[in-house]
Structures are given as C-alpha cells and as structure tokens.
C-alpha cells in the first residue's frame, strides 16, 4: 500500500531531512511514526501526498510511483489519503455537516452520496445529532472527530494523522485513538505521527521511529 524505496530528501542541496528511507506498510496496517522535533516526520508526510518531491528514491502508493505523477494527477493521489491535522483545520463559518459536505463536493460526490456519507461518518465518529452545530460550539475532542469524519467521508484507503491529539487532554486523546482503531478495523491503513507516549505504549502497534532523517527503529509491536 505504502512503500518508500531508498528515499532521500534534501533541502537547499545539503540539508538532509530524510536519509535513505526504506519502509513498507501493507493494506489495513496501523502504525505510529514517532521521533523528536526535526527528525523528518512532517517531511515524510509531505512526501506521501506529493506536497514535496523526494530528491532521490521512489515512493509507491497503491503500487504507483508518485514521483512520476503529472501535476494534474496529484489531486487524485490526495483523494486516496485522508489527512487529519493537529489543529483540526475546520471551516468555522460552516456547520459540522457543511464541513463534511465541503470534502465530498471536492471529489464531486452525488447529492445522494453526500447525504448518506455525512450520516455514516458522523455515526462512525460518534457525532450523530451534531450536524447543525458550528465547530466553535463543540469541544476540542469533538472538533477533531469532525476533522476525522471529514477525512473519512471521501472513503480514502489511507488515513494519515499529524499529531491528531496534540491539542487534546489525555482522556479525549484516548477516545480519538479508539475511533482511529475502529476505522482501521474496517480496513483503512492508518499512519499516525504522535508524541503521545502512553498511548503508543498501550496500544502495542507498529512503531516507526525517525531521528535525524533516518529510521532508527521499526517494530511490529513496539513502544515509544
């Protein structure tokens, strides 16, 4: 599903952000990407969605070398990957339902699909009944669930989350991870960048650790 082959990313020719990364994630896998600030985690995610291009090496998503995509094909790559941000990135002048509708309009879903998907994803993240609320009428945890629902609404086979619980208290963070596990159990491949040590240790899932742009640890059932 996701494969990095000898991937190197340099900035300004000499600053190495990622150094010879080799990694494979199968369909339906759940993994944490951990490491200190500046270790290359954000660059890793940006390369996956072709926000940036690798200096050398290959990145395969669904078997396709994304380095060879033409500019106009990039949106279709991004539709395969649902992105969840630490700061939710919701539209505060739109209701919960409209935030999800926004994503579905982008992929040009039909009217019927839009209605049914809003209902489905809100049910998945436990926000049924909050359709007409505006984001600022919700708690931080609920807002992140809306963001998760939005990422799920377009049915991407992969979800990547960049510190999704960074702004949340531990109990709420736990709930978010439960939702992510639930989504994973339905077959979605999930990669989470996080600093939530306790949760990583408790869940006992695959852990990929980066430091100074290199993979320093990759364990099937690892800890932080």
């Amino acid at each position: 599903m996701i494969e990095f082959i000898n991937v190197v990313k340099k900035y300004n020719h000499d600053v190495v952000a990622l150094d010879n990364i080799n990694l494979k994630m199968e369909k339906g896998e759940f993994a944490f990407l951990v490491g200190p600030s500046g270790s290359g985690k954000s660059t890793f995610l940006k390369l996956m969605i072709r926000e940036e291009e690798a200096t050398s090496g290959k990145i395969l998503i669904d078997g396709k070398d994304i380095g060879k995509l033409k500019l106009k094909e990039i949106p279709y790559l991004r539709r395969k990957i649902g992105f969840v941000f630490q700061d939710f990135r919701l539209l505060y002048d739109r209701t919960v339902a409209e935030n999800i509708e926004f994503a579905l309009r982008i992929i040009e879903a039909s009217e019927r699909e839009i209605r049914s998907q809003i209902k489905n994803v809100l049910e998945m993240v436990g926000l049924t009944g909050k359709e007409r609320y505006y984001p600022n009428q919700l708690s931080g945890g609920e807002q992140q669930r809306v963001a998760l629902a939005r990422a799920l609404s377009t049915k991407p086979p992969i979800i990547i989350a960049d510190e999704p619980t960074g702004n949340l208290d531990p109990a709420t963070a736990n709930d978010i991870f439960k939702s992510l596990l639930d989504i994973n159990s339905r077959g979605t491949t999930i990669l989470i960048v996080t600093h939530a040590k306790d949760i990583v240790n408790n869940l006992n899932k695959r852990v990929i650790a980066l430091d100074h742009g290199k993979i320093v640890k990759d364990e099937e059932r690892g800890g932080y």
Binding site: I49, P75, L77, F102, I107
Partner: peptide, 16 residues
C-alpha cells in the same frame, strides 16, 4: 487561504 489549503489536502483539482 484556509479553505484553499484544506481543498488541496482533500484533493481538489485546480479547476475546482
């Protein structure tokens, strides 16, 4: 720009 940022991440085409 906030909308545009989100649009790009969700996979909006340039035309959209």
């Amino acid at each position: 720009k906030r909308e545009i940022f989100i649009m790009r991440y969700i996979g909006a085409t340039n035309k959209f």
